[in-house]
Design a binder for these strands. Structure first.
Length: 589
RNA sequence: CGGGAUGUGGCGCAAUUUGGUAGCGCACCUGUUUUGGGUACAGGGGGUUGCAGGUUCAAAUCCUGUCAUCCCGACCA
C-alpha cells in the first residue's frame, strides 16, 4: 500500500525551528522526520523511521554477507559487568545510572563490550567455536555534556555495534579486515562520502584502530590528509623527526639576561635586539624551546607533573596530549603545582642550569620531573630556552650535548603544510563526522571478564576481540546534511523513505484515480510509493512538500492528462519531462 | 564546567526600553472560492507570558531567586 499524505501522521513546517542551527537538523524537523523530545533525544515520525529502517537494512545485509550474526541486548544493564572492567567509574558523568526499587545499580548502556564478551563466555568454551562475530542494532545512551545539531550528537542514539572473537592475533586481523570491507560496502551503498583515517588506539587499550569520517564542515573531528593518500585523525598523526645534526662545531651555549619576556614573541624580539645570530638571519619562534608543565592525573587519582619541550612556534594540542598520556587526564600545571616545585622557575624553565652544570629537568635531574621532548628536538639542534634562572635565557643549548630528556612527547599541534609521516606530501586539515569505527580491541575485555577457551592442546587461551561501530541515526543526519538544497531534502535512492513520490495535482476525479492507479502499479512492480492524494490542497503546497520531503523521483499527475501524459520530476536536477501515462511505470523501474 | 543568548497559544515572532490586563504570521476548525508553484474572503477555537517569591491600585514588562533550552569552548569508547 502506498503511504497516503491524506492520512500520514505528518505536519510540515514552513519555518525553521528556532533551536536548530545546522541544515540537516532544520530540514529533518521541518519535513516531519523527527521531533525533539528532550535535549539530544528525538522521537521518530513515520518518514524518519522509514529512512532509519533503510539504513539498518543495508547494514544487516552487509553484516550477514560478512558472516556476522545479529543478536539484541537490553539497553538497561546491571552494574556488575561494568564494575568488572572498571568502566562503571571510568565512564564518569557520561554514563546514565539508575537504581531499581531495591536500590540496586543499573545503567543505560553507552556501549556493549562487556555484554557481548559475557555472552560468548556464557555459551562458548572451545577454540572450535571460533571465530565468531556478533552484532546488534541498538539504542545507546550517553549523557553528553553538550548534545548538538539534532541527531548528530544525541544522548540516545542508534548504533550498530559488532564484536569479533578470535583465538589468534592473525584471526583478529582477518575478522577486522572483514568488518572493514563490509563498512566500505555499506557506506558506498548508502551514498555517503567517507575517508578512512588512522585513529588513536590508546584510549581503549587496543592496537589497530581506524575511523570512517564523512568530510563535512559541521564535523566535530579534525583529521589530516595528504595528496599521496595519507589520512589520520589529528590525535594519531606522528611527527616526522628530522635527521640529527652534527654536534661538533656548534657554538657554545651562553646565558643572556632576558627581563620582561613573558611570551615567546617578546623573547624573540629581545633576542634579535641584543644577541644577533652569527649567520645574519633573524631569530624566530621556531628557534626557541618552550617548556610546558603539564599535570597528569591517573584514573586512580594520582597526580604527576611532566614537562614537555617543544618548538616555541607550536602550541600543545590538548586532544593530542590527552591521547598521548591516556588514560591519564591532562591539564596545565596550576599555581600550587609550581609552589610545590620551586625548582621550576616559572617563565624561565629550562632543562639545565648551565653555569652550575646542573641538570634540572628529567627523572635524573634535580627536580625529578619527567622531561619529554617534541620529536623535532633531535640531537644537534640548538635552542634558545629558559636558563631556569629568573629573567635569563640560554642560547645555543644543543640537544645531545648540553641536555637530554627522558623520552618523546608528540603532542604539538599539527598544522596545514606539515609533512605527512609517510612522506606522501604536505598535510591539509579538514573536518569530518565520525560515522564508523573499527577497532582491534585485543584481550583487554576478555581478560577482565575471563573469556577463555580451550585450544587444541586442551589449554585455556584468552580470546582476542575486535569492536566495530556504525552510528545509524547519525548517518541519517550525515545523509541529510550532504543531500539538500534551499527547497529541502534530496535523499539518495538507497535511503529515501519511498522510491517514488506521486503528486496528484488537480481537482478532477480522473487526476486522483490515475494517481491511485499509478501508485498501485508501482507498488505491484516492487516500488514503495508516497502518494499525495490530498484534495483541497493547492498544487503549490503539494510541490513544496514534495521538495521538502525529498524523495528523489517525483511523478506529477495533473493537467498533462489532457494529452495522456504525466510529468517525471527529478528532485536532484530539477528536470521535468512528460511521458505517456502507460509508460510511466516502466520509466520509473 | 567557563563564555554568550533566549524563555510569550502547536511553530515562528511582536508587545518589555516608557507597568494599564496579550497581538501578528503560519498551522488548526467552519463556510464560500481557488486547483501546475505555498489561492482569496468571512467566521472561529486555542496562551494563568518557564517557575517561585517580591514591589505596586495594577506586572509579560520592574526587583530577587530558580529552572530550562540553544550557541561557542572544555569534555566526549
Amino acid at each position: 500500500m502506498p503511504i497516503r499524505l491524506s492520512t500520514l501522521f505528518l505536519r510540515t513546517l514552513r519555518e525553521d525551528p528556532s533551536d536548530a542551527e545546522v541544515t540537516s537538523h532544520k530540514l529533518l524537523v521541518r519535513a516531519g522526520y523527527i521531533r525533539r523530545a528532550a535535549p539530544g533525544v528525538y522521537t521518530w515520525l513515520p518518514l524518519g523511521l522509514a529512512v532509519k529502517a533503510k539504513i539498518e537494512q543495508v547494514v544487516r545485509e552487509e553484516m550477514a554477507a560478512a558472516g556476522a550474526q545479529e543478536v539484541f541486548f537490553p539497553a538497561l544493564l546491571p552494574r556488575e559487568p561494568y564494575e568488572a572492567t572498571g568502566r562503571w567509574t571510568e565512564y564518569g558523568d557520561n554514563l546514565f545510572r539508575l537504581q531499581d526499587r531495591k536500590k540496586a545499580d543499573y545503567l543505560l548502556a553507552p556501549t556493549h563490550e562487556e555484554m557481548f564478551t559475557l555472552l560468548v563466555k556464557d555459551l562458548y568454551t572451545s577454540y572450535k567455536d571460533l571465530p565468531v562475530c556478533l552484532y546488534q542494532i541498538q539504542n545507546k545512551y550517553r549523557d553528553e555534556a553538550r548534545p548538538r545539531a539534532g541527531l548528530l550528537r544525541g544522548r540516545e542514539f542508534v548504533m550498530k555495534d559488532a564484536y569479533s572473537f578470535d583465538l589468534t592475533d592473525e584471526g583478529l586481523v582477518a575478522s577486522y579486515q572483514a568488518q572493514r570491507d563490509a563498512y566500505e560496502r555499506i557506506f558506498t551503498r548508502l551514498g555517503v562520502d567517507y575517508v578512512i583515517v588512522k585513529a588513536d588506539a590508546g584510549a581503549m587499550g587496543g592496537s589497530a584502530s581506524e575511523e570512517f569520517l564523512s568530510p563535512s564542515p559541521i564535523g566535530e573531528d579534525t583529521f589530516v590528509r595528504s595528496p599521496g593518500g595519507y589520512a589520520a585523525n589529528v590525535e594519531a598523526v606522528q611527527t616526522v623527526a628530522p635527521a640529527p645534526l652534527p654536534i661538533e662545531g656548534q657554538p657554545a651555549a651562553v646565558v643572556h639576561p632576558s627581563p620582561n619576556t613573558p611570551t615567546i614573541a617578546s623573547l624573540v624580539d629581545l633576542a634579535n635586539a641584543t644577541v644577533p645570530r652569527a649567520d645574519g638571519r633573524a631569530w624566530t619562534a621556531a628557534d626557541t624551546l618552550k617548556n610546558v608543565v603539564l599535570a597528569l592525573t591517573s584514573p586512580e587519582g594520582k597526580r604527576e607533573l611532566v614537562v614537555v619541550g617543544l618548538p616555541g612556534d607550536r602550541e600543545v594540542d590538548a586532544k593530542r596530549a590527552e591521547a598521548a598520556f591516556s588514560p591519564n587526564d591532562v591539564e596545565p600545571a596550576t599555581e600550587s603545582d609550581f609552589e610545590k616545585n620551586p625548582g621550576l622557575v616559572k617563565g624561565y624553565i629550562g632543562p639545565v642550569k648551565l653555569d652550575e652544570g646542573e641538570q634540572v629537568l628529567g627523572l635524573e635531574g634535580s627536580t625529578k620531573i619527567r622531561y619529554l621532548l617534541d620529536p623535532r628536538v633531535v640531537d644537534g639542534t640548538a635552542w634558545i630556552t629558559g636558563a631556569n634562572i629568573a629573567e635569563k635565557h640560554v642560547f645555543d643549548l644543543v640537544k645531545g650535548r648540553d641536555f637530554n630528556a627522558d623520552g618523546i612527547a608528540d603532542i604539538a599541534e599539527v598544522r596545514a603544510g606539515d609533512e605527512a609521516p609517510d612522506g606522501s606530501g604536505p598535510l591539509e586539515l579538514a573536518r569530518g563526522i565520525e560515522i564508523g569505527h573499527v577497532f582491534q580491541l585485543g584481550r583487554k575485555y576478555a581478560e577482565a571478564l575471563d573469556l577463555r577457551v580451550l585450544d587444541e592442546n586442551g589449554k585455556l587461551q584468552v580470546v582476542t576481540m575486535g569492536s566495530y561501530g556504525i552510528g545509524v541515526t547519525r548517518l541519517v543526519s550525515v545523509l541529510a546534511e550532504a543531500n539538500n538544497d534551499e527547497k529541502g531534502l534530496i535523499w539518495p535512492e538507497a535511503v529515501s523513505p519511498a522510491d517514488v513520490y506521486v503528486v496528484a495535482a488537480g481537482k478532477d476525479d480522473v487526476v486522483y484515480e490515475t494517481a491511485e492507479r499509478l501508485a498501485a502499479e508501482l507498488e505491484a512492480a516492487g516500488k514503495s510509493v508516497i502518494l499525495d492524494d490530498r484534495q483541497k490542497v493547492s498544487p503549490g503546497v503539494k510541490f513544496g512538500d514534495a521538495e521538502l520531503i525529498g524523495v528523489p523521483k517525483i511523478v506529477i499527475v495533473g493537467r498533462g492528462l489532457e494529452t495522456g501524459e504525466v510529468d517525471l520530476w527529478d528532485r536532484r536536477s530539477g528536470e521535468r519531462r512528460p511521458v505517456k501515462v502507460e509508460s510511466a511505470v516502466a520509466e520509473l523501474l
